[in-house]
């Protein structure tokens, strides 16, 4: 625990204290954020993530050590926090770490820990979870177009099962996956959610036709009508197969 008599000497050894009133000492809690870890992670390959740490009193945590530990407590990656807070935050000091993914498929819950270089700040820790998959075998090319006009739509979020991709300006996205049957979901603000199912046994192309959502403005008054069900078509090019689906 922190010694209330020595907050300033503690600060001088490590973190530069911005808020230095003695009564604040007890509330110097370190918490972590973890982001930009691609999902899923391919077994045996290296993966990267960003980790940031913030002190509840806004202290400068530059140089603080951070490390990744497996469920068994084995350290698998480490680094130190940089000097500039993450854009948009007030005092989240961060760095990028990389680590070797496990060799077997599964879901994992590992831990990130920040060091406690001096007594003022205790260790911060945060669990992060991820899924590993075997290396992909096939390339799926997805193209998303507007149902009425055929115009390509960019920035559509796509999912094939647990794999994900985002369309480019040509409305195209590519994702590499192992063979199998996948739920395909396309989503973008202003458009109806589209979902269907596709079998992937080789490199294939899928065209998705989406429709703009109804005007989101709701009337001032009773909402008595159920939303209308809309129907659309997923066309899969290559082996000819059209998938019918209903979406709202």
């Amino acid at each position: 625990m922190v010694s209330p008599e020595s907050p300033f000497s503690a600060a001088s050894r490590g973190a530069r204290l911005l808020v230095s009133k003695p009564e604040d000492v007890a509330s110097h809690e370190t918490s972590l954020a973890v982001w930009d870890l691609a999902s899923p992670v391919v077994t045996g390959r290296r993966a990267t993530l960003k980790v940031g740490a913030a002190c509840s009193c806004g202290c400068d945590l530059t140089g603080t050590a951070v490390a990744i530990h497996t469920e068994a407590g084995r350290p698998v990656g480490s680094g130190t926090l940089g000097a500039a807070p993450w854009p948009g935050t007030s005092a989240l000091y961060w760095t990028e770490l990389d680590f070797a993914a496990p060799d077997t498929e599964g879901s994992y819950s590992w831990t990130l820990q920040s060091g406690a270089p001096e007594p003022l700040h205790q260790q911060g820790s945060s669990a992060f979870r991820f899924i590993t998959v075997n290396p992909p075998e096939h390339r799926v090319t997805l193209k998303v177009v507007e149902r009425q006009t055929g115009a390509p739509i960019d920035a559509v979020e796509l999912r094939l099962g647990i794999f994900r991709a985002t369309t480019n300006e040509a409305g195209v996205a590519q994702v590499e996956v192992p063979g199998g049957a996948y739920d395909v979901t396309a989503w973008k603000i202003g458009y109806e959610i589209l979902s269907s199912r596709a079998d992937v046994a080789g490199d294939i192309s899928i065209q998705l036709e989406v429709a703009a959502a109804a005007d989101p403005e709701q009337p001032y008054g009773p909402r008595l009508c159920a939303p209308q069900e809309r129907r659309g078509v997923v066309r899969r090019h290559g082996p000819s197969l059209a998938l019918r689906f209903a979406f709202r």
Binding site: V34, W35, S90, E157, R159, W187
Partner: peptide
């Protein structure tokens, strides 16, 4: 249709 994690600060 789960799409987005809540992960990027702030």
């Amino acid at each position: 249709g789960l799409m987005f994690k809540i992960q990027k600060p702030p």
